[in-house]
Design a protein around this nucleic acid. Structure first.
Lengths: 323, 323
DNA sequence: CGCGATCTTGTTACCGATAACACGGGCGGA
DNA sequence: TCCGCCCGTGTTATCGGTAACAAGATCGCG
C-alpha cells in the first residue's frame, strides 16, 4: 500500500507538503505541486480513508432514515437507496439505513431523512450534525426532490396538446407537500387553458382507482385524459378502462407519475412522469457531503426536472418492445 | 465521543486491557472483564471503526461486482444489493458496487461477485483477498444461492398435488448452473411421479413466453400446469392463457420463480417460488466477513430454501388483496 | 540597510485503536 | 530457599493521515 510518506519520499518533500497538495493546494507553490502530483500518479497513490477519517474526527458514515412504514421491496426506495449509496461512495462514505424508530444517532457525520411527519421535526431539530431531507418540505430544511409541480404540468400540457376534451386528476389522499405540488401543476395548467379541473383523491392503490373509475364510468365521457399522482393509481385506471371496454388511448388517455419499474411491467406500458430517482439519490448524497464539508452551511432546495415518457396509454405515445 | 481510554480510566485499567476484553477476552481475568464490561455499558462505548481499521490494516470496504449487463432498475439486483448492504452494515463494513469492467481491485478487504462467466475466473483466481460468489458455481468457489433444484421440486410437487395432468417446464435458454438446477428439480420430481416431462426454453422475456404459448396453444390441453424458470416467463404465460381464453387456474396453472416484485404487480398475482433475496444478500455478506475474519478459510456452499407462494394462478392458491 | 510581515515548508503531537514487548508476581521443582 | 517459567497486565511504537506551531526565506518599507 502506497502512503503519503512514500509519495513524500519520491517527491523529496515532507508528508505535510503532500497532504497540503491534496487538501490546501493554494498553500503550496506550483513547482512543488507538480512534483507531488507526478509522484502520486507514478505510484498510483490512494489515500487511506480510515487514517483520514481518524485524523479528521470523521466517521465516514451517514445515516439514511426512511420514516414511512414502507416495505423495502418497494422499488422506489430501493432505487433511491441505490442512488444515495452511489453518491456517497464517490466520496468514500458509507451508508447506514435506519427504518425502525430505535435510533442510534451517534456515530455519523450527517443524516439523510425521508418521510418525516410533523412530530418528527422535534428530534430532527435537535440533531447536531448536518441534515438533508429527501422530498419537499416546508420547514426550511435543505432538500432534494423531483419538481412535482412541473411534472404534472408537463403531463397536463401533453394531454391538452393531444386534444383530450376533459382532463381529470386522480390524486392521493395525503396531506403532503408532494401531493399539493402535483395537484398545483395540474390546476395551474388547466386554468391557464381555461379548462375545468376535476380532482378525485383516494388511497395509493391500483385497486382503489380501478374501483373508483369503474364505479363512476358513466361520468367519464370519451376523449378524457386521466393525470394520476402515481403509477399505481394509473395502473388501476388503465385496468378499469380496459374492463369497461374504453378505447385506450383513442378515447381515454392515462399518465402516471414515478416511472419506477411499475410503468414498465404493466401492459400496455404506462405513459408516465418519470422521476430520475437514482440521480435524485446521488444528489441528496452530494448535497449532504457538501454541507458536511462546509461545516453545515445551508444548501437550499434542489428541484430536479422529471421526464415525460409517452407510451401507449396516451395518444401520441410510442411503445418500445422491451422488458 | 467515548474512547477506549475513557473506558480504561473508568475501570481503572489500561487501554490495552479494554482492547483485550473486546478482541481476546480469554486473556483477561473474569474479574477485570466484568469491570470493563460494566464501564463500557455505563459509558455506552462504541469502538471507533476508523481507528480499528487503521490499526488492523483493514479498509472496512468490500467490493460487489455485478458482471452481467444488467440495468440497475432490475428489482432483483436492487434487492440483493440491499441485503448485502444490510449484512455488511452489521459489521460496520461499507460496500462499493462495481458494474463496469474498469476495475479498481485495490482498497478492499474482500469481494462479492455475481454473474461470473468462464473467462472471468481468470482474474478472479488472481484476487489476493477473500472472495465469495453469489449464485451457484461449479468452480469450487464459496457461494450462497437459493436452492434452485428444491424450488422447482416444490413447485412441481404442488402442481402434482393439485392434480394437473400435464406439467410443462418453461425454461430460460442459458447454460448456467441455476437453470440446470431448476430443470433438474422439475425433471426428477416428474420422473419420480412417472409423468412425462416437457421442457421448452426461450429468452427470459414475458413476450417470448407469451408468443410461444399463444403459437402452440392447441398443443396444451386443459388441465396443464406450467412451471416457469422465472416470473417474467410466467407473466407471459399468464397473458397468453388469458388471451386464448384458457380458464386460470382451473384448466391451466402457472408457477413462476423469483418472487421479486413482478409476481405481486401482475394481475392476477403469480404463484411463485419466492427467493429470500434480501436474506441471501445478508448471508453472502456474512459469509465473506467470516471468511475475512478467518483469514480466508473456505466457507463452502450455502443453499437457502425458497418459499412456495401459492396465489391465484394455480389451483389451491389464495390471493391477498394488497399492493 | 535593518526589521517586521508574509509566505513556504518542515517538525511535532495527536486522532483511537492494536501488536509486540516488558515486567512483576505466583507457582512448581530442585 | 532459590530459580525459572508462565500468566496477566501495562508500556511503547505504530497504522496513515492532519492541525498547530516552528523555522527559514523573501519581501517591502522606512
Amino acid at each position: 500500500m502506497i502512503t503519503l510518506s512514500d509519495v513524500a519520499k519520491k517527491a523529496n518533500v515532507s508528508k505535510m507538503t503532500v497532504s497540503r497538495v491534496i487538501n490546501h493546494p493554494e498553500q503550496v507553490t506550483d513547482e512543488l505541486k507538480q512534483l507531488v502530483f507526478s509522484a502520486m500518479k507514478e505510484l498510483n497513490y490512494r489515500p487511506n480513508v480510515a487514517a483520514k477519517a481518524l485524523a479528521n474526527n470523521r466517521t465516514q458514515v451517514i445515516k439514511f432514515f426512511i420514516l414511512e412504514d414502507i416495505d423495502t421491496t418497494e422499488p422506489y426506495y430501493m432505487t433511491l437507496l441505490f442512488g444515495i449509496a452511489k453518491g456517497l461512495d464517490e466520496k468514500q462514505y458509507a451508508m447506514q439505513l435506519i427504518t425502525n424508530r430505535n435510533f442510534d444517532l451517534d456515530y455519523a457525520d450527517g443524516y439523510i431523512i425521508t418521510g418525516a411527519r410533523g412530530s418528527d421535526y422535534e428530534w430532527i431539530d435537535r440533531l447536531e450534525k448536518p441534515v438533508v431531507l429527501f422530498g419537499e418540505n416546508r420547514n426550511g430544511y435543505d432538500y432534494v426532490d423531483t419538481d412535482n409541480k412541473l411534472g404534472t404540468q408537463m403531463a397536463t400540457e401533453a394531454a391538452l396538446a393531444q386534444g383530450y376534451a376533459n382532463i381529470v386528476f386522480i390524486g392521493i389522499d395525503v396531506k403532503e407537500p408532494f401531493e399539493y405540488s402535483r395537484e398545483a401543476g395540474y390546476l395551474n395548467t388547466l386554468q391557464k387553458a381555461q379548462f375545468e379541473p376535476q380532482i378525485f383523491r383516494m388511497g395509493n392503490h391500483s385497486h382503489a382507482s380501478e374501483q373508483f373509475i369503474t364505479a363512476h364510468w358513466a361520468e367519464f365521457s370519451p376523449n378524457t385524459a386521466f393525470i394520476c399522482a402515481s403509477d399505481r393509481l394509473a395502473l388501476g385506471v388503465v385496468r378499469a378502462i380496459q374492463h369497461c371496454d374504453g378505447a385506450l388511448p383513442d378515447d381515454y388517455g392515462v399518465v402516471g407519475f414515478d416511472g419506477v419499474f411499475l410503468d414498465q411491467v404493466s401492459n400496455p406500458k404506462l405513459s408516465t412522469v418519470k422521476q430520475p430517482v437514482t440521480r435524485l439519490g446521488q444528489l441528496v448524497a452530494q448535497m449532504l457531503l457538501q454541507k458536511i464539508q462546509q461545516s453545515g452551511a445551508p444548501q437550499g432546495e434542489l428541484l430536479v426536472t422529471p421526464e415525460l415518457v409517452m407510451r401507449h396509454t396516451m395518444r401520441g405515445g410510442a411503445d418500445a418492445q422491451t422488458e
